[in-house]
Design a protein around this nucleic acid. Structure first.
Length: 701
DNA sequence: GAAAAATGGATTTTT
DNA sequence: TCCATTTTTC
């Protein structure tokens, strides 16, 4: 994709001259030209799904559809970002008003426009998962009984249940029966908390993630004039990764496309891996049943993987019962078989992977064309140490999100107080940083502040807030902290600074938060660096509100630079790095060489999913996703033992997903050390350092 | 009674 | 390592 199509002036579409026949295959061409009305595209892994969607959009533009009449919804920020990037390449830099983003992004944008209709202040804040949990915790006060008496579940469980009900559009009763039968008798408690949670969100002028979608649906349903207008505007609705859409998201799209019926959904049921968020594979399977006259397209040519890799993927996924049958065909030449590597333990797993990667580099493979995938984050820990020892640069995707780290959120809490003084969550977070102040006192202080005046404007109330009288009633131990807090507020309350979030962050650091970091965290230096980076990032924003909103909805990872947002001063990272990623994070991506870790029984599939057939099928789809990321070489690693805290060293069988494969689709290989066996888990670090360059011989059997 | 310190336990995947 | 619960302190 090196050619560019530049749009000009008022009728952008007419400047597009694309040779579709030359750039697309027949299957893709049919979609691009024919997917009007209700259309379902079943796209196999590596079949050029994104490409097809992009060309569909270009085609629509060429037909004279205005960019802002097109709504392209994707599932993750990463997918949205990639789509936007590739589209901009085609369109010469500008999206010309095209709506492209995640559900939550677009919901947010629409709700800001129509806040008044929904009784919201346009400056509403967004609670992330942690904020939401904190607020729910505070709601336990509303319970008619003591939580400990009835072994009432934790806030995260309550949040999970409420969120699941919202996303699946089921009642709390149903969710409790289906997913939390052991809490089924506590429905009243859940309800009491839910009611109080709603109240507190309203009073603090906040929405949580689910509210962005729920309120959007309510807007469409309860305000027909707005709903009609929006449906009129978005003449073409396209949904990517449709297999991961949950009923709530589906409702949004159904409502938006009701008038014109132009709803194109693209997905691969074999890659549905988000049921924990309420996605149901049944949703895509039933799409043709839910609508009349659905056009069904299939993209079954795989451009990514070798026939050998595809054979393994097909051999696995056909064990699932719930699926459309697809017949993926590779266009690539035959190469070597995928390998199943048996290693003794986790340590040997790391050693093997690191060593094989070094060999691949010798063979001329670039690091960035190699990925190591795993089921769960912690599985990468051991490998990370090994890579550091061998000085192999890597990026870990799926770590703690940059913006969700404690120190980042602490600083953001002050900004949120400025932006939305009613935000009780932010007040509590900032105040409880100070010694002597806990949640109880924080809540009282916030109430006192709100009582000072109508609470709508921090700047107006600032004089009273920072006066000597404020907080004088609190107990002695809290006094010093309150004064410190007032001091920070005093420094950041200059209205002139509101347009400069970076300045505000700097002031918060100077006013004492830097000291706080040094006192509280052992890796304080890194964290202060993070905060400076946050300030750099903030520099590109002209208002506090847009900065905060973007952060709440943006996916950004530690170690990843804020791509495209900074002013050319990208971090001095080598651009050739190994990728470590959870399988979930790897969806939609591809690499020449892929290693999959931990293919042992009990690790993958995750042991909790083994009893449930649906869950097991989802795990198998996860395995399918992992395998189909690979273009040329695939290594499945099976650690033959694992260390159990109680039982000691335990033998693990290979993953059932490997055992059920026909034996001709892979080659079994054993990786053993030459020297005498020794129990690796008993060795101390000195010994480990000593044999950095030991050699493993790889013998086929 | 509330906050701080100490202890114990567990850890899938994400907007 | 991070979080939640229990114990200790003010």
């Amino acid at each position: 994709m090196t050619r560019k199509y530049v749009l000009h002036g008022a009728a952008p579409g007419h400047e597009l001259k694309i040779n579709y026949e030359a750039e697309l295959n027949r299957e893709q061409l049919e979609v691009v030209r024919g997917a009007d009305g209700k259309s379902l595209v079943l796209a196999g892994a590596g079949s050029g799904k994104t490409r097809t969607l992009i060309y569909r959009v270009l085609y629509l533009l060429e037909q004279g559809v205005k960019p802002d009449q097109i709504l392209l919804v994707t599932f993750t920020n990463k997918a949205a970002g990639e789509m936007r990037g590739r589209m901009e390449k085609h369109l010469g830099g500008s999206m010309q008003g095209l709506w492209c983003g995640t559900f939550h992004h677009i919901g947010n944008r629409i709700l800001r426009q129509h806040a008044a209709a929904m009784g919201l202040s346009p400056g509403f804040g967004i609670l992330d998962e942690e904020d939401s949990r904190t607020l729910i915790k505070a709601c336990y006060a509303a319970l008619p009984f003591k939580p400990t008496d009835l072994r009432f579940p934790q806030a995260s469980v309550v949040r999970g249940a409420l969120s699941f009900a919202a996303n699946t559009q089921k009642t709390l009763r149903q969710i409790l029966d289906e997913r939390y039968p052991y809490f089924s008798h506590l429905e009243d408690g859940f309800r009491a908390i839910a009611a109080d949670y709603e109240r507190r969100k309203r009073e603090s002028n906040n929405l949580d993630f689910d509210d962005l979608l729920l309120t959007w649906v309510r807007l469409l349903r309860e305000h027909p004039e707005v709903g009609g207008h929006l449906s009129e505007q978005f003449r073409y609705c396209l949904v990517d990764e449709y297999q991961d859409i949950n009923p709530l998201q589906n409702t949004v799209m159904e409502l938006l496309s009701k008038r014109h019926g132009n709803l194109l959904v693209v997905g691969d049921d074999a890659q549905s891996i988000y049921s924990f968020r309420g996605a149901e594979v049944q949703n895509i399977l039933d799409f043709p049943k839910r609508h009349e006259q659905v056009k069904i397209f299939k993209l079954q040519t795989n451009y990514r993987s070798t026939p050998e890799i595809l054979a393994l993927a097909n051999g696995s996924i056909r064990n699932n019962l719930r699926q459309f049958t697809k017949d993926l065909v590779s266009v690539r030449d035959s190469q070597k078989l995928p390998e199943l590597i048996k290693v003794r333990d986790l340590r040997d797993q790391s050693t093997f992977v690191a060593q094989r990667i070094l060999e691949l580099i010798d063979e001329g493979v670039e690091l960035k064309q190699i990925a190591v995938l795993f089921r769960a984050r912690y599985q990468a820990a051991e490998l990370e140490m090994e890579l550091s020892r061998r000085q192999i640069p890597y990026v870990l995707r799926g770590g703690v999100r940059f913006f969700e780290q404690a120190h980042i959120k602490d600083v953001l809490a002050y900004l949120k107080i400025l932006e939305n003084p009613k935000d009780a969550v932010a007040w509590s977070r900032a105040l409880t940083l100070y010694p002597g102040i806990g949640p109880g006192i924080a809540e009282k202080l916030h109430a006192e502040y709100l009582g000072l005046f109508d609470g709508s404007d921090l700047v107006a109330g600032q004089a009273r807030l920072v006066s000597a009288a404020f907080g004088a009633k609190a107990n002695k131990r809290a006094r010093a902290g309150i004064e410190d807090f007032k001091n920070v507020i005093r420094k950041i309350s200059d209205p002139k600074d509101a347009a400069h979030p970076d300045l505000l962050i700097q002031k918060i650091l100077d006013a004492g938060y830097s000291r706080e970091v040094l006192a509280r965290f052992d890796n304080a230096k890194d964290r202060i660096e993070d905060l400076k980076e946050l300030a750099n990032f903030a520099h590109t924003y002209k208002s506090l509100s847009s900065f905060l909103t973007d952060l709440a909805l943006k996916e950004n990872f530690r170690g990843e630079s804020f791509a495209g947002q900074d002013d050319g001063k990208a971090k001095p990272e080598p651009d050739d790095q190994l990728i470590l990623s959870t399988i979930h994070q790897a969806k939609g991506l591809e690499w020449k060489v892929v290693f999959v870790l931990g293919l042992a029984d009990g690790q993958f599939p995750h042991h909790q999913s083994k009893s449930d057939e649906r869950a097991l099928e989802e795990e198998r789809r996860l395995f399918y996703v992992a395998v189909t990321r690979s273009q040329d070489e695939l290594y499945l690693i099976h650690p033959m033992t694992r260390y159990d805290r109680e039982a000691g060293l335990v033998i693990s069988r290979p993953s059932p997903f490997v055992e059920e494969l026909p034996s001709h689709v892979y080659e079994g290989v054993e990786a053993m050390e030459e020297e005498a066996p020794r129990p690796s888990w008993k060795r101390d670090s000195q010994e480990r350092d000593a044999d950095d360059d030991e050699i493993i011989s790889i013998d086929e059997f």
